[in-house]
Structure formats: C-alpha cells, structure tokens
C-alpha cells in the first residue's frame, strides 16, 4: 500500500496504542516507539510493526507508536488500521494479515 496521507489509529488508554503513519516517499520505513513497555519489549514491538508493514506491502512510511501497555495483537491492529486510513484503502486484504 502507498501511504498518501498522515493518519492515526488507537487511543492513549491503558492496554492500547496510538499509531500514526506519515508518507515517506522513497525514504523506506522509519519507526519511532515510545511508552512504558518500550524498555522491556521495544525490540518485540518494532519487529511486529515491521512485519505488519511488510505484509501490507508498505515500503515507505514514517511510523510512530505511542504504546500504553499494548499487546502485539493491538499494535498490529492499530498499525493496520492506520495504514488503511493513510492509504485510503477500504477493502483490507485480510488474507495477508493472517
């Protein structure tokens, strides 16, 4: 998917994450992570975010994640929702998100 606009998904509530995706044309993927789990789960969260972006075919994006104790499933859901919004895609390829 091509990231056309800036878009966010998620909240700042406990157990959730606020994910923002911005265009980064030709600049590859950049990822910024903040939150209380970052010291102990930062690598896991980044890995799951990169995997989600690549499964959606997102090659260029500037992604920031503000987590409040979100589990991987929540990180992935917030990221895929933000990507869908930023790419203007309504019909999500659920198959590739398995």
């Amino acid at each position: 998917m091509i990231i056309e606009n800036e878009a966010s998904a998620g909240t700042a509530e406990s157990g959730d994450a606020r994910v923002t995706v911005r265009p980064n044309k030709g600049g590859g993927l950049s990822l910024e992570l903040r939150g209380p789990s970052a010291t102990r789960y930062g690598e896991d969260i980044k890995a799951v975010a990169i995997a989600t972006l690549s499964s959606l075919g997102v090659l260029d994006a500037d992604v920031s994640i503000e987590e409040k104790g979100a589990l991987d499933a929540t990180i992935r859901a917030r990221l895929s929702a933000a990507v869908g919004r930023a790419a203007g895609v309504v019909d999500i390829p659920w198959e590739v998100l398995a």
Binding site: A9, G10, A73, T74, R76, A77, R78, S80, A81, G84, R85, V90, I92, W94, L97, A98
Partner: peptide, 12 residues
C-alpha cells in the same frame, strides 16, 4: 474500521 482490525486480531 479500527474496531474491525482489533476484532479481527482478537479472533486470530
């Protein structure tokens, strides 16, 4: 849309 992604992941 966001809830749909969350529920999908929860089910998965």
């Amino acid at each position: 849309d966001a809830a749909r992604h969350l529920v999908f992941r929860a089910l998965k």
